[in-house]
Design a protein around this nucleic acid. Structure first.
Length: 476
DNA sequence: TTTTGAGTTGTTCGA
DNA sequence: GTCGAACAACTCAAA
């Protein structure tokens, strides 16, 4: 009689193309105890939308396993040790985790399990290429996307594997997955004010089946992805980000399904590669989660007083008076998701029009997004703030009105999420405050700042930070 | 070591 | 309204 092996699910909540589950089944001779541990220490920064999405995903996984998913709550080391003792397991298998906190947790758990004579082994990663693998010819990590992309293209891609067959899922005490409620512990920074406790209405196509349906639908439009992805009104992006985050789909499966040689597919593969690039950057610079990557901008002057918190909350509520920004922020509140183009516009607005710390915005996105991923979110924000890996010589400052005119020319997206503008045609509905002639009765707010004035203020602050940095370097 | 070419996503201004 | 140049001049990766 072979002892059962524990498979510890984390961000790989699927059964198809799952080397870790297959390895556990092999070691356990078909007997696997599959467990998910709700870790209060990690859920502190998980907002209600993502928490609810996770619960829905866990339910789907449990269903796919015939109700045999074991869910526990508490410190993962203690919970896994206890489960191992209960069922006589001697080894735990999981997919490798790459976020700084995930890595620290795994080191701790491995030590705690070793004290009980239980091993912890990692198999596979949530990426096509394991972070830390790709290097320049000089052996250093890449800091610019395009050279990374060229090297990434040369890496071998494993074929997706079939789901395991003939596995007997070992049962054990478990929280009732059907009754599982909130896993967010609601620790919010002061500048959030009273915002962000509301749930979001996310896409109902959750779990592995939902992921495959979403992928299938995307395949029908991927060939036009290059032309349509920047148009939030068309809503043609893949919508796969929550699935890639929770691992209901592996990027290998996505690449395998989109190998057609269209321009659309190539551009989409670039987006998948961005996810891998930022995971690699975070692997080499774990501190970049909250610290700027460019030392010259470490001391950029940002506002943090009470008035700044007020401005932040106005931005978060979607009441800046800039229609595209407001539409995006309201989509985030309502759906727990925002179109990528609009994420950039909203982020640029917070940093370069409101002069707030990018970390405030990143924290809010982490709190509200169902797809929030530490690497992609933090580095996307650093890119917007101009402190990240982007090597462009100039400061890009998005003009929120110009962006609306370029990417939502008919105003479809803006009107969908800002009902005050429902009766206003483009281009008026794209202008600050909804245009000159907008009736006060519509209730839409006047612009909170003048974009051109604040643009100059942002340039002045960036200049100031660089001058100060160079003066400091010259002294030392 | 030095040099060279190039870098997701931009905006404004003036002809 | 459209087009091209100016903006400000950095940093990376490879030869």
């Amino acid at each position: 009689m072979v002892n059962p092996v524990i498979f510890w699910f984390r961000r790989d909540l699927r059964l198809g193309d799952h080397p870790g589950v297959l390895e556990a089944a092999r070691r356990g001779d078909g007997h696997v105890a599959a467990v998910f541990v709700i870790d209060p220490a990690l859920s502190a920064s998980v907002g209600p939308a993502r928490a609810a999405y996770l619960v829905a995903t866990l339910r789907a996984l449990d269903q796919a396993m015939g109700g045999r998913l074991i869910v526990r709550r508490g410190d993962p080391g203690a919970q896994l040790a206890r489960l191992a003792r209960e069922i006589g397991a001697r080894s735990v298998v999981c997919t490798e985790e790459f976020t700084p906190r995930g890595r620290e947790r795994d080191v701790r758990v491995r030590r705690e399990l070793r004290d009980c004579d239980v091993t912890l082994d990692v198999v596979d990663s949530p990426y096509v290429v394991r972070p830390g693998t790709i290097a320049t010819k000089g052996g250093t990590p890449f800091k610019v996307f395009t050279p990374f992309r060229r090297a990434w293209d040369l890496e071998p891609v494993a074929r997706p594997l079939a789901a395991p067959t003939g596995v007997t899922w070992t049962t054990a005490d478990s929280l009732d997955v059907a009754q599982l409620a909130e896993v967010s512990s609601l620790v919010r920074p002061a500048y959030f004010g009273d915002l962000g406790t509301e749930p979001a209405a996310f896409d109902a196509r959750v779990g592995e089946v939902g992921a495959l349906v979403t992928l299938e639908e995307f395949l029908a439009r991927v060939e036009r992805y290059d032309d349509t992805r920047d148009r939030p009104g068309l809503d043609t992006t893949s919508r796969l980000s929550p699935h890639l985050h929770f691992g209901t789909l592996h990027p290998r499966q996505v690449l395998a399904a989109t190998t057609t040689a269209s321009n659309g597919s190539r551009v989409f593969h670039s987006e998948v590669c961005w996810r891998e690039f930022y995971a690699d950057v975070l692997w080499h610079n774990p501190e970049s989660t909250w610290r700027v990557l460019q030392p010259a901008l470490a001391n950029l002057r940002v506002d943090r007083d009470a008035a700044a918190a007020e401005r932040f909350q106005r931005w978060a509520r979607g009441e800046t008076g800039y229609p595209l920004v407001d539409a995006g922020m309201r989509q985030l509140l309502r759906e727990g998701w925002m179109h990528n183009r609009v994420r950039m516009v909203a982020a640029s607005f917070l940093v370069k029009q409101l002069h707030l710390d990018w970390r405030w915005g990143a924290k809010w996105f982490m709190w509200r997004l169902i797809d929030a991923d530490v690497a992609s979110n933090q580095h996307g924000w650093q890119w917007s703030a101009g402190t990240g890996t982007d090597a462009a010589p100039f400061h890009r400052i998005f003009n929120p009105t110009r962006q609306a005119e370029r990417f939502d020319p008919e105003g479809d997206y803006v009107r969908r999420y800002v009902p005050e503008l429902a009766g206003v045609a483009a281009p008026q509905c794209l202008s600050p405050g909804g245009g000159e002639g907008l009736l006060a009765a519509s209730g839409y707010v006047a612009p909170m700042v003048d974009a051109s004035t604040e643009r100059h203020e942002a340039l002045a602050r960036f200049h100031e930070a660089r001058v100060a940095h160079h003066a400091g370097s010259a002294r030392s």
